[in-house]
């Protein structure tokens, strides 16, 4: 694979290049960026190293076969959905799973940092919205984003376990986004 030539390409650029040239190597380069993440995701659901390795190989084959059929825009969200569905399918031992065509709807699986772009006039909304979160979320969000503490430090000071801290931050962030959007529309 001519990996070096494409190192500075974003996922979107690689996808565009793939759709215009139909070069399979480009999917290979793209997938290679996600090998570790896919393996980790499969480990989370399957809890077995060999099964996870096999699952990642199956996901690779699936992507190589499915990607040419659809116009994928957000590769990261798409591949996450493929991986998660594949693991859930293995766990449930069912043959049917969510249609790949619905991936557009699922794009909000990924809460990228750019989704929460705060404009200057939104700071007021942000301040008000934080106060509307529940105490746990407020506490975690403030310590994480304002005081720049790590998950472990927040866990120590609040007494929540690491999973709870992560969950409060993610849910708090999602709720903030909703609250700010509502305030913008009012």
């Amino acid at each position: 694979m001519q990996k070096n030539n494409y190192e500075n390409f974003t996922d979107t650029e690689l996808l565009e290049k793939y759709y215009s040239t139909n070069t399979i190597d480009l999917i290979g380069i793209l997938l290679q960026r996600y090998t570790l993440l896919l393996f980790g995701t499969c480990m989370k659901y399957l809890k077995d190293e060999t099964k996870s390795k096999d699952a990642v190989q199956q996901i690779f084959l699936k992507v190589l076969n499915e990607l040419p059929k659809y116009k994928v825009t957000f590769f990261k969200s798409w591949i996450y959905m493929i991986a998660k569905n594949h693991c859930l399918m293995l766990l449930r031992n069912k043959t049917e799973f969510k249609s790949l065509e619905n991936f557009e709807i699922e794009n909000d699986f990924e809460l990228d940092k750019d989704e929460l772009i705060i404009k200057e006039q939104d700071f007021e909304f942000l301040e008000l919205s934080i106060k509307e979160l529940n105490v746990e979320q407020q506490n975690c969000i403030q310590q994480f984003y304002i005081l720049k503490k790590s998950y472990a430090e927040i866990s120590k000071t609040t007494g929540y376990n690491l999973m709870q801290v992560k969950s409060h931050i993610q849910n708090g962030k999602r709720n903030l986004k909703i609250l700010i959007t509502q305030k913008r529309e009012q």
Partner: peptide
Amino acid sequence: ADSTLLNDAVEGLQTIKNKTSIDHYVSDLN
């Protein structure tokens, strides 16, 4: 916190006891 994929991956990888084996798995898969 921004990426569900990264979050899930970290949670999964944290369950692997022998962290040095991760490199081997990734290299085999590639």
